[in-house]
Amino acid sequence: MDLTISDDQRAIVDSVRDVLRDSMPMERVRGALDGDNSGVERLWSQAADLGWFGLGLAQHYGGSGFDLIDEALLFKELGRHLTPGPFLGTLLGARVAAIGGNDDVAEQILLGRAPVGIAVPRRSGDYLIHDAQAATYLLLSDVDRTVLIPAAAARERHRLASLDELSVRESAALTIDPFAEVAESFDPIHARGCTLVAAVLTGIAEATRDMSVTHAKTREQFGAPIGTFQAVKHRCADMGVRAALADAQLLFAALSVSEGQPDAALEVAAARVVAHRAALSNSRETIQVHGGMGVTWECDAHFYLKRTHALRDLYGGERDHRRLLLTASG
């Protein structure tokens, strides 16, 4: 057992951070809201050049041959930086196309030329489509199998209101005629998807912890930084614990999936639940710590809160994982 972050992994994180800081700082994320997509497009082509979409895909499939844990480190940064774009669907879609035997499609996806959205069935019988804009393909995943279908298969598409202004969601009817399909028992795409959503949420929990700490160190009231007051300090401490817990469990989930450990299902469900709770609590709390600023549009806190809510049902929410947590063997 080895839980130390390697030099290679540190290098991945540093490089992702540099790219996101340069290409997608918060001004550009906000720019995307006002219809300026130049930042998003530039980052997308950089991501393709850097091999992000095939980071954990074996080299003989055209990927970079890293592990799920390395993809999780990437997605944690995407969560931290509120990066908009169909990163998750595209990374998983490339994997499904490659492993499912459709090399040409896999290549197009890996090159960033065919973004992939994620379709989630709704109780009403139709589908909720995440990152629907500009998607060439759609990914549909459950605990048994994952399929890739052309986005053209979506009919009756309607843009849905989204709490998260940065992610576009649609409802649609789908005819499922997959041209690439991977059974979960062959390659656990669903478990990888859950793990990467947990990674985004962990990134959110860390970013909101850091925002709170920075504010508590600098904002002064009663002649002292508000972080000296226990009412504020203790909120920050709890945010620190939640983020650390989510991060440690993310590590265990990612490693247990790659290694095919017998308790992987439990580890993944735990990671998804703990990370969601951490992201939700920390983004709520950071609004409170920021006081009046916290409820303004100018403060970034609300974007984290909204992104967390938008991710609720992607790869299973807390309720979906409940059954698993009550039955899986540890």
């Binding site: 440690a248 265990f252 580890e267 994982h321 409940r322």
Partner: peptide
């Protein structure tokens, strides 16, 4: 009860991960 137990199971699982990570690091 089911809801609370599921959350607690997720939390004890994560506690183990936090403990191992802390101790081994």
């Amino acid at each position: 009860i089911a809801g609370q137990l599921a959350t607690l199971r997720a939390e004890v699982t994560a506690l183990r991960a936090l403990t191992y990570t802390h101790v081994l690091r």
